[in-house]
């Protein structure tokens, strides 16, 4: 799994951080998403899928081909 975040879409909601704090964080100044790891380990994937689904700005895209 590879995660792609679109900073320009992100509205700083932080829903992703609530669901997968090991993978996502937010910038201190404007709350825009920070990707801590683009290729999360197996045990994190379910919560990353959940985060991508609940992001209210559709800013998280997953490439599950790899």
């Amino acid at each position: 799994m590879k995660i792609i975040v679109d900073e320009d879409r992100c509205c700083g909601a932080g829903q992703c951080v609530l669901l997968a704090p090991e993978v996502f964080d937010q910038r201190e100044d404007d709350g825009i998403v920070i990707l801590l790891t683009a290729e999360p380990g197996e045990h994190l994937r379910a919560s990353v899928r959940e985060a991508a689904a609940v992001c209210p700005a559709s800013a998280i895209e997953l490439d599950e081909s790899g």
């Binding site: 700083g12 909601a13 932080g14 951080v17 609530l18 937010q26 910038r27 201190e28 404007d30 709350g31």
Partner: peptide, 13 residues
């Protein structure tokens, strides 16, 4: 409510 402080507001949720 956070005004230009999204992360800080979320931390107090």
């Amino acid at each position: 409510l956070g005004w230009n402080m999204p992360k800080q507001a979320r931390l107090r949720r």
